[in-house]
């Protein structure tokens, strides 16, 4: 070859803002993802949480019931967003894109990191949209709780980014979200996002505490309710994050060994 090409490896294994930007653009292009992660949670809030009685009923720690429902929906939205962010790998594997990426310097770890960052960006947008919609439609929270609840809902949703990755590697489907949608709805119900668990009987409440959504909901609502055992909730989040991460790593290793 006449021209000498400078050959070097990219920094950080190929993790770059350029890639995140392009991936984000692609995600936004997918209407189903946008509706699922950004539109649905505020709509649920408007349907189930913003009634006149919820708006007038006050909470002990300040704010109203509508605000309480709103925080739960923000958690739900963050969860949908981060799960679908992680689950993108399923579609990409099905299309042979993961294999194509292995013909580039991108390291598998950097790819996962990009997916996690994307999941968290979409999660942040989802939480933000839900809170803004709530703020304009009668949800009330103490000033600090707006920020604290939003941040906690977002950070804790990292559990579901790991869950999405795990499912993305586990399920060979092109339509992984059609499977995960109902699964997340069931988990949200079991974890007390749609209905407080103590309204469903003590046995159910005890079981609910062991499901992955429970801890996230408890922590996100804590600035508002100051209720429940924060340490146990944190433990729940940590343990479930670990479980899903280990699962994702396990499937991921098998995947890279096979392809």
């Amino acid at each position: 070859m006449t021209t000498v090409v400078e050959r070097s490896l990219p920094r950080w294994g190929g993790f770059s803002l350029g890639m995140i930007g392009l991936e984000l653009r692609r995600m936004v292009r997918n209407r189903r993802t946008v509706v699922f992660t950004v539109v649905m949670p505020p709509v649920f809030y408007l349907l189930f949480g913003s009634s006149a009685s919820y708006r007038s009923e006050r909470l002990d720690g300040g704010g109203n019931v509508a605000g309480y429902v709103l925080v739960s929906m923000a958690v739900y939205g963050a969860m949908l967003a981060t799960t679908s962010g992680g689950a993108m790998v399923s579609v990409e594997r099905a299309a042979g894109w993961s294999r194509q990426l292995r013909l580039t310097p991108l390291l598998p770890g950097a790819y996962i990191a990009v997916k996690l960052v994307l999941a968290m960006i979409v999660g942040a947008v989802s939480v933000l949209v839900a809170l803004v919609v709530g703020a304009f439609t009668g949800a009330e929270l103490p000033a600090a709780a707006w920020v604290e609840c939003g941040l906690l809902a977002w950070v804790c949703a990292l559990v579901f980014a790991a869950f999405g990755l795990f499912m993305g590697y586990l399920l060979p489907s092109e339509n992984v979200l059609q499977i995960l949608g109902p699964v997340l709805a069931v988990l949200s119900f079991a974890g007390g996002l749609f209905v407080p668990v103590d309204q469903l009987g003590s046995t159910f409440a005890r079981i609910a505490a062991f499901t992955p959504v429970y801890g996230v909901g408890q922590i996100a609502r804590y600035p508002l309710t100051h209720e429940g055992n924060l340490w146990l909730a944190a433990l729940s989040v940590v343990v479930w994050t670990a479980v899903f991460s280990v699962g994702a790593m396990w499937r991921f290793r098998r995947d890279t060994a096979r392809v």
Partner: peptide, 24 residues
């Protein structure tokens, strides 16, 4: 490669740009 290896919801230009980003 023979088949696959492309994402339907990227444009042609974006796909090549992403490759450029990855190779620096």
């Amino acid at each position: 490669m023979q088949s696959g290896g492309l994402l339907k919801d990227y444009t042609v230009g974006e796909t090549v740009r992403l490759t450029a980003v990855l190779f620096g």
